[in-house]
Amino acid sequence: STPQATQPVEFNHAINYVNKIKNRFQNQPEIYKAFLEILHTYQKEQRNLKEGLCPPGYKPLTEGEVYAQVAKLFQNQEDLLSEFGQFLPDA
C-alpha cells in the first residue's frame, strides 16, 4: 500500500532535515533521540485522535507545544530551529 499522498517536495525536505539533524548531533545522540521522541509522541497522539482513541477532554500535543519542546532541545542551533518552523502551520 502507498503511504499517504504526501507532496514529494515536502517528503524530500523532511528527509534532508532529519539527516541534517542526525549529522549535527552525531556527538550528542541523546539530543537527536529526544527529537525523534517528540515527533513520535506527536504522531502517535494525532493517530489516536483520528481514530477516536482519546478520552473526552484529552488534549494532545499541539504543533506549538512540539515547537516549544524542539526549541528547548535545539538551543544555540538557530538554523535548525528556524528550519523546523517551516514544517509547522503558522499558529
Partner: peptide, 27 residues
Amino acid sequence: SYDFTPMDSSAVFTLSTMAKKSKESDS
C-alpha cells in the same frame, strides 16, 4: 547516502505530514 532507522523514517513521515497540514491550512 542515507542510513535511516525505522525511528528516523517515522520522524520523516511526521515532518512531511506536518508540512502538508501546514500547507492545507495556508489558503
